[in-house]
Amino acid sequence: MKNEVVRVVTPLPLTEEQKEIIKKHLSRLSPQEDFTLQEEVDPSILGGVIIAWGETLIDCSVKTQLQKIKERMLKEMLKEAS
């Protein structure tokens, strides 16, 4: 089984339960790989998680979700105005 080091960014330090959840989801994508989590705490992402390994990036941060909502709100407002 190949070992893959995964960079995991969260706003709070990861609990064991959270680590298991992350590994569970990652194994769905690459069942043959074993994942080692390299933790990084960044309160600015507010919530959720950012996972990066190799060329893959999964941005599930609340900050990015908020950014998307913000962009959608602005687009909708602009559409309504025109």
């Binding site: 609990t15 919530g47 996972i51």
Partner: peptide, 30 residues
Amino acid sequence: VETVVVKILNTQITPEVQTQLIDRLLEEAV
């Protein structure tokens, strides 16, 4: 709105909520 939401989230995101968020958001993304 964003500032207010960020302020609310800063006080509302507990480790339990964070666990749920990680699970739900990763489920969607994966």
